[in-house]
Structures are given as C-alpha cells and as structure tokens.
Amino acid sequence: MIFYTFTEQRLREFTEQVFLKMGCPEADAKLAADVLLKSDLRGIDSHGVARLTGYVRLWEKERINARPQIKVVHETATTATVDGDAGLGLVVAPFAMQLAIDKAKTYGSGWVAVKNSNHFGIAGYHSLMAVAEDMIGISMTNASPLVAPTYANERLLGTNPMCYAFPAGKYPPVVVDMATAAAANGKLEIAQRANSPIPEGWAQDKNGQMSTDPNELKAGGSLLPLGSDKTHGSHKGYGLSATVDILSAVLSGANYGPWVPPFVAFLDPPTDPVGEGIGHFFGAMRIDGFRPAQDFKDHLDNWIERFKSAKTVDPEKRVIIPGEPEYAFEAERRINGIPLIEAVVTDLNQLAVKMGIEILDA
C-alpha cells in the first residue's frame, strides 16, 4: 500500500478551502476542518479528510446546508434541544456541546439533544471540549442503518458511536470513544481501498452468514453489533446502540432506526421520515460538582498507573488506557505529518480540480 505524508497545516488549509467553496462562513470552515483534522491526528483515518468527498456530495444533493441557522428549540436550565438546520454536523455538534458546557458551568451539568444535523466526525472531539473545562464529556450520535440487531438480517441501526472523556492530572485524558457496532463503517472503507479482507465477526452477508468481504454492505449485507453474535455478547452491543439511537433521536426529534438518512449521496433518504435529519446527544458534568477537581484528577492518575502496571498474560504486552493510542498518534503526527493512502489522495485531488483549489502535492 502506498502512503503520502502531509503536514497538518497543509491538510488544514486544503480542508478549509473545500468548505469555503461549499459556501460555509469562514469560522464554520475553520471549525469543520479542525474536527476532521483532529480525527486524522488521532489516527482515526476513517473519519478525517477521507470523508471530505462525502460531505461535498451531500452538499451537492442539497442535503447539507452550508449556512445553517442553528437554534435552540426547547430549553430548561440544564437541558436543551437544538435544531441544526441541516448543517454540517462538524459545526452543529460543537455548538451543542458548548451549550452543554455553558449550562454545566452554571448548574453543574448540561445535557443537549440535537436534531436535523449530519455526520459529526469523531465523537471524541466533542467530549474533549468538556475535558478542557475540567468536566466529564459525553457525546454520541446515531447514524445511517448499516447494523443488524442480534438475530436480525435487516439493517435497523447505525454504528452509533459513543464517547466518554475524563480529565486526568499528569496523564492524558481517559477517552472511551467507540462504535457500538463490531467495527465502524469507515474501517470497511479503508479495507476496500486497500483491497484487504476484514476480520470475521465484523459483517454478515445478505443471507446472515459471516463474511470477510469488505464490500459486503454493497451486496446487501450488514454490519454486526459489538460482540458479533449472541455467543460473544452481541446483545450488549445491540443494547448500547439502541441507547445511542434513543438518546440522540427519539429524544430530540431526529430520525431513528431505519429512517436515518444515509451518509452516501447516491442513496436517497427514506420517503417516510419520522423526524428531522440525524441526531446527537451531549453531556457535560463539572467534576467539582462531585468532589474537588484536583482530587479527582489525582485519583484518576492513580487509577491509570495501577491499570498500566497490571500483570499481563503476555510479557510483551501491557494494558492500554482508553485514549492512549490516539494520544500517541497525535503527538507523533504533529511532528512527522499525517499519512494518507494513495486512493484517498487521488479522491481529494479529483475534488480539488472540481472545486478549483490547489491540489495536494504528493
């Protein structure tokens, strides 16, 4: 597989230019680019600049509003529902998380549900906004139906990621950022570009049989919940995914389950929607609403140290703290640049030509 490496700044400039060409205000273009670059920096390549062409195609189909009028449509002291006006989730989601944070600053916690939005990038970006304020951050979103519930052979749920982020003291934050499916769809896309098989347990074919073909979804198959099958706990992944769907969409007034609009532009949204757009859910909790923040961070440092020192079944391996690999990726990539596979660079340069911006010089 061929990789090309680009500086963070070059990819940031390129991404901002794409969003500006879509008609986004400058501040929104910078914010959207920041969300995508955070993904690439943290090694979550499936949700970074590789997604740019997908956003552009949805905008061309008039399914993304480049200049949304984001507004609060229901509110109490500690809760709110936000209408994203079909805007980029990369812009709508930070607005909603900031609202949750502002409420938490005053009342100890803030909870915000979102409807009428689009794909919001990595959940970790939004949760880490709260961590920066000495808060626990929670973020989740529903997504287009690609996942079959336990025992089913029908796509009813999205990969529906959730993220919990906790500030530590001398260590990086603990960040639990995961899809509630056995694998995120972006990982299948990476395997497709690399022409590589996927691990058994990620997907099933249209007949409900396990498959290692990364193109299975295109052939009518489905992703499996976290746990893969009932024997290995898929009912738990299904339950987590259902929780995300209910909090993100049933609560906010967004589409849920099989009615969630697809991220790909060549598929039309359902003709019988039950809500508006896709949904998100955010929470921010002040740590000093429970105990002094420094006490919590000191004890989370102790928690981290104890887990990192755990005895392992293989002396060559060690226990990894949630978020630790992504932190290491970010530190390394800020210095050495961000690698993109050849297929992604080709897609981005085709996009650059179409939109009249400078191509990425590989």
Rank of each mutant, 00 (worst) to 15 (best):
M1L: 08
T5M: 00
E8Q: 07
Q9R: 14
R10L: 13
L11Y: 02
L11D: 04
L11F: 10
K21H: 06
G23N: 11
A32F: 01
A33G: 07
V35C: 07
V35F: 00
L36N: 12
L37I: 15
S46I: 05
H47F: 07
V49Q: 04
V49F: 03
Y55K: 13
Y55V: 00
K61D: 09
R63M: 14
N65R: 08
A66W: 06
T79N: 11
T79F: 06
D85V: 00
G87A: 10
G89W: 06
G89Q: 12
A100P: 04
K105V: 09
G108V: 10
G110W: 02
W111K: 09
A113M: 01
V114E: 13
N116H: 10
N118A: 04
N118Y: 02
G121S: 11
A123L: 04
G124Q: 07
H126D: 12
H126I: 12
A130F: 00
A130L: 10
I138N: 03
A143D: 08
V147H: 03
P149F: 03
E154S: 12
L156K: 11
C163K: 11
A165Y: 05
V176H: 13
M178S: 14
A179L: 05
T180A: 14
I190A: 15
A191F: 08
Q192H: 03
N195G: 07
P199Y: 09
G201W: 03
G201P: 06
D205R: 03
G208A: 04
D213F: 00
G220N: 12
G227I: 04
S228R: 04
S228N: 12
S228C: 08
H235C: 09
Y238D: 15
G239I: 06
I246Y: 00
S248H: 02
V250P: 02
S252Y: 06
A254E: 07
V260D: 08
P261F: 13
P262S: 10
V264E: 12
A265V: 06
P269C: 10
F290W: 15
R291L: 15
D298Y: 00
I304M: 10
I304Q: 15
R306N: 11
R306C: 09
F307L: 15
E316H: 09
P325K: 14
P325S: 15
F329K: 04
F329E: 10
F329S: 10
E330G: 04
I338Q: 02
L348R: 03
Q350V: 00
L351M: 02
K354R: 11
G356C: 08
I359V: 13
